[in-house]
Nucleic acid binder design. Structure first.
Length: 507
RNA sequence: GCGGCCGUAGUCUAGCCUGGACCAGGACAUCGGCCUGCCACGCCGACGACCCGGGUUCGAAUCCCGGCGGCCGCACCA
């Protein structure tokens, strides 16, 4: 039997222990959708909470929650409708499919075909005799595809709505209110996490590419004349691995490691704020368990970039099966979106700066995919130890904080253990209780879902109110008074204490 | 959407080529017992599956067709 790769092992645990599984299973399934179980929901929430803490709370930014369904005017204004309608042509002989605009550009040397109407494209294809580059066959009529989900709003169905493909537009259309709430000062930022919808043609790779997923997004508005970031110094010396646009064009495959300060000085990153968020991003992903050498920032090439982007660095993580996978995008959106909404709505989106001038703010956007990060955290937490599986999650994102185990199921030990369990529940911990099977087996099961601490109630507990605490990663044990547990565990889970600080070491 | 491979209990899998002894076997998990003194202990018992639909056949997990789904490659991925 071929060795199962990491992805398969993670998927197996995910299904068996209830992290996540394919949606709509009882009706045969539907790719691009995933359902999170109890553990997965908690893991996801913990990761989202870490993001919120780092990117919103500690920055003093403002959080929003805006609708998923938007009227079509929003995406007409933002350019998504125009840029997201693509045409495919299919070869009538070999059946291969191509993007109409690309094939025309390649075959005729024309540029900017993307904005053309179907009729224009058909006309050009006939005039220039565009044929299948693979077999020389004729093309059929172009087929339109739209990767935004369309729906209708209200009873008449006259109003067309779309599922948002990004949360960003919610921030842009609320820019004026946000600016007021931020006391009319630049720079400021609006952020939100929430579901977005992308009707992918053929999603693959399970939880990596979904039609409905959770985005964690932040729009930082700044004065283009005063683009400084006061907190940049906090990350200026952070080393990052960068693969710039220029490097890729030269065929360079290995990123260079630079400090963010150097990357800015060498003009690899266009704005300070973008560099700042890349620094936070690297630390955030590192905190989720991905070592720096398995992360990189790759600039998107012009043809890859979204219509609104002047520069985008994809934050990529090396995954076992798929290689480098994007977990975040850092885009410099300039004033594209505010300008677009100002024009479409007729409202003035300029603001008065400290210099007494009216400017249209520029925008830098870090944007993260939560489900991908959740998978990434599982893959990087995965370890095999003595034929058992351990998910060594960082202890502040582990879906369970602590498990309480009576050493044996007699002599009053279960009763005592339940008391401890109740105490920890009352203190707000995510806690499991397990009395089935041998103690070693229960440790192993707790390890498999990444529970950082196991509390064992033994015969000594009945005498002196102490329990043992066992570390998931080292199997070391310490003994501590029950009443001390809540305070110590709370600090331990926040990385304010090390394991040896939790009590007196055993053995 | 095209091409290749694939779909058996909660999970992983045997069986499929060469149809019948398969009312589908195993391991792990789960449940009920017995056991229990710190790392998936042992024993007994129980629950539990052929993706869906059609066809061929006396007989289909097995062969054929269609659908759905998965993985890989191409395309796509704002």
């Amino acid at each position: 039997m071929p060795e199962r790769d990491l992805y398969e092992r993670i998927i197996e645990i995910a299904k068996r222990r209830g992290f996540f599984w394919p949606s709509f299973e009882i009706y045969g399934g539907m790719s691009g959708f995933v359902t999170f179980g109890d553990l997965g929901t908690r893991l996801r929430r913990n990761i989202e909470e870490r993001w919120r803490d780092l990117f919103i709370r500690r920055q003093g930014f403002l959080e929003l929650s805006t609708p998923i369904i938007n009227p079509s005017r929003v995406f007409e204004a933002s350019g998504h409708l125009a840029h997201f309608k693509e045409y495919l042509v299919e070869c009538s002989r070999c059946g291969r499919r191509f993007r109409a605009d690309q094939i025309i550009e390649e075959e005729t040397g024309l540029e900017y075909v993307e904005g053309m109407t179907v009729e224009e494209m058909v006309r050009i294809m006939e005039e220039k005799g565009v044929r299948c580059p693979e077999c020389g066959g004729d093309f059929k009529e172009p087929i339109e595809f739209m990767t935004m989900f369309r729906t209708s709003i209200g009873a008449t169905g006259k109003e067309t709505g779309y599922g948002r493909p990004e949360a960003a537009q919610g921030m842009f259309i609320n820019f004026r209110r946000g600016f007021e709430l931020a006391r009319e000062k630049l720079p400021f930022a609006l952020a939100q996490t929430g579901r977005v919808l992308r009707n992918e043609i053929s999603p693959r790779k399970g939880v990596i590419r979904l039609r409905e997923f959770t985005i964690m997004e932040l729009e930082l508005f700044f004065d283009p004349e005063e683009p400084g970031c006061a907190r940049f110094e906090e990350v200026a010396e952070e080393p990052v691995r960068i693969l710039s646009e220029e490097m890729q064009l030269k065929g360079v495959r290995e990123p260079v490691e630079l400090r963010l300060r150097e990357a800015l000085e060498e003009d690899l990153i266009k704005t300070v704020w973008q560099a700042y968020f890349m620094g936070l991003s690297k630390r955030f992903v590192a905190h989720l368990g991905v070592p720096p050498e398995r992360q990189r920032f790759r600039a998107q090439l012009p043809e890859e970039r979204a219509h609104y982007s002047a520069q985008t660095y994809d934050h990529e993580v090396l995954l076992d099966r798929w290689g480098w996978v994007e977990v975040a995008g850092h885009a410099y959106r300039t004033d594209y979106d505010l300008r677009a909404h100002a024009e479409a709505s007729g409202l003035d989106m300029t603001v008065l700066t400290g210099r007494g001038e009216r400017v249209l703010p520029h925008v830098v956007e870090p944007s993260f995919g939560l489900e991908r990060l959740t998978y990434v955290s599982m893959e990087y937490a995965y370890r095999r130890v003595k034929k058992r599986t351990v998910l060594s999650f960082p202890r502040d994102i582990a879906p369970t904080n602590v498990t309480v185990l009576p050493l044996v199921t007699r002599d009053g030990l279960p009763e005592k253990a339940r008391e401890v369990y109740r105490l920890l529940l009352d203190e707000g911990f995510l806690v499991d209780y397990d009395e089935k099977g041998s103690i070693g087996r229960r440790y192993a099961k707790a390890d498999e879902i990444g529970t950082p601490i196991a509390v064992t109630v033994d015969y000594q507990t009945l005498e002196d109110e102490t329990v043992t605490l066992r570390d998931r990663d080292t199997w070391r044990q310490v003994r501590q008074k029950i009443e001390m547990l809540p305070g110590l565990l709370r600090r331990y889970l926040r990385y304010q204490l090390d394991f040896q600080d939790l009590g007196e070491e055993l053995k």
